[in-house]
Write a protein that binds this DNA or RNA. Structure first.
Lengths: 133, 133
DNA sequence: CTTGACCTTCCAGTGACTGGAGACCCCATA
DNA sequence: TATGGGGTCTCCAGTCACTGGAAGGTCAAG
């Protein structure tokens, strides 16, 4: 199977698949013409990678998860640790974004948004004299 | 004021301040020795930038907001539009992360995390035969 | 005069791709 | 056989917002 079919079936763009080969996540065979030839196993890996990336795992996490996935003797504790750490990162990001959202929503709400120059958003971003020093 | 003091007072690292000058967000004066010399106005801009970045505005958004901030005849509608667009991006990111969190929490919960190789996390990431094609 | 903290510029790397150039290959139709 | 269109290859560069580090200049204290 050529790269375009692999892309269509895995849901990953061809460029990304080439990149994954570049960084050693997959090793598709090559035909006589130099074209990559994707096996069913390659396709499974790509799909695995697509799902893991969609869950926000980093490439290095994916590399580890892929190795664990292929290791029949793995301990599930290893996988759980990675997932749990990733979960707390996701939760931290959510918390940070919630704070942003709160402030932004407040500012957008307070701003008239008309042709007048008064703008609570800029006023809030600006350093106020009594705050400095 | 030298860059370190400006950094301490604005809360931005010196490297970041130099970078902001590089991309034209600020233009501090220079002393005879070539050192950057930060005025109160420069400091205000840096603080403004720090706050806007902390709210997740992109550098290009910051450039625009900074210009609007300095333009006394600006219309607050311009600012509100930028903030509202940014707010929806933040909300979209939160939604995506919430979905991730849900899936990850479920997976972490389902995984025994012991020495046995059974792992629902990997099983879920793996493409299942009945799902393929 | 030396030490150490500070400053300068410039180059390179981060993560995870993405875009584009230039060249090669394959197949179908005229 | 020529040609056209689509697929593929590699390699280089750019994205975003910094960050690290090297090599060298400057300054104030002791």
């Amino acid at each position: 199977m050529n790269i375009k079919d692999a892309a269509d079936r895995s849901g990953l763009p061809p460029k990304t698949i080439r990149y994954y080969e570049d960084i050693g996540l997959i090793r598709p065979a090559r035909g006589d013409n130099g074209y990559r030839s994707f096996s069913a196993a390659d396709l499974h890996k790509l799909t695995f990678l697509g799902r893991a990336r969609a869950l926000g795992f980093s490439i290095e996490d994916c590399r580890t998860l892929l190795a664990l996935w292929e290791d029949k003797d793995r301990a599930s504790g290893d996988v759980k640790r990675i997932a749990r750490e990733h979960l707390s990162e996701v939760e931290a990001k959510i918390a940070a974004l919630e704070t942003m959202r709160g402030t932004l929503a407040h500012l957008v709400d307070a701003c008239a948004g008309d042709d007048r120059p008064d703008c609570p958003i800029l006023a809030d971003l600006a350093p106020r004299p009594e705050r400095r020093l």
